[in-house]
């Protein structure tokens, strides 16, 4: 009865059909909210959580915790379970403060790592920002470099908060805001390409993989 489950061709078709229905089901929201969308929305929420359970066990807990603890005899990993259970005390009125202990470890880790992150990330950026000499280079380069500094200074000026911005500072700051808008426009334009690529991927799936190959049986 379940023979089709081991037949790669039949299974391939089933997967394509399911994927096509999921795709069209979600797209119906573009027309308006409806029962079909709501159905697939809940399938989506369920699959997402179910998959997270599977992947967390298979990729993390099994190889990094269970196997070392049970098969390799590193019994002290049992303490990790107890520590992990502290998270759940957040739902207890009486012991919820203990969940802060485990949050504290993660807050602390994140804070401690910030120094290395800052140095590794911003030192090269600062250096490259300085590497814009405006004298002793060809004129077009000098203009570009000057522009770089002017933009950097004006945008950063916009983001000073601890004093009232008046007069010349206000003018630089307003220019900074305009330059920001220019940059945001560029980001918007670039992003259009990204989103269109994804849509092309989906439409290609519907037209080629689903309609042409699976329904029409074309090669």
């Amino acid at each position: 009865m379940f023979d089709f489950l081991t037949d790669p061709a039949a299974m391939g078709k089933a997967i394509v059909w399911f994927a096509a229905l999921c795709t069209l089901g979600l797209y119906t929201i573009l027309y308006r909210e409806n029962v079909v969308f709501r159905f697939f929305e809940h399938i989506f929420l369920g699959l997402a959580t179910g998959y997270a359970i599977y992947a967390t066990w298979n990729d993390v807990l099994r190889p990094r915790w269970w196997t070392p603890m049970v098969a390799e005899g590193r019994w002290w990993w049992a303490f990790a379970l107890s520590a992990g259970l502290l998270f759940y005390l957040i739902y207890s009125k009486r012991y919820s403060w203990m969940s802060r202990l485990i949050f504290a470890v993660f807050f602390g880790f994140a804070a401690g790592q910030a120094f290395q992150f800052f140095a590794s990330t911003y030192f090269p950026l600062i250096r490259s920002a300085i590497n814009n000499p405006v004298v002793g280079v060809p004129v077009p380069t000098a203009i570009n470099n000057l522009l770089f500094i002017v933009i950097l200074v004006s945008v950063m000026t916009y983001f000073f908060f601890s004093f009232e911005q008046r007069g010349g500072v206000a003018r630089v700051s307003r220019m900074g805001r305009y330059l920001l808008m220019f940059a945001f426009g560029a980001i918007f334009g670039s992003t259009i390409m990204a989103r269109m690529s994804l849509l092309i991927g989906r439409v290609f799936f519907l037209l080629d993989t689903w309609i042409r190959q699976t329904i029409l049986g074309g090669a």
């Binding site: 950026l125 250096r127 940059a183 980001i187 670039s190 992003t191 990204a194 989103r195």
Partner: peptide, 17 residues
């Protein structure tokens, strides 16, 4: 990278990262 994140990464090309 995706086209979204492209613009953000240009400074890293210039800095040699």
């Amino acid at each position: 990278t995706t086209a979204v994140q492209g613009p953000e990464a240009f400074p890293l090309l210039k800095s040699g990262q």
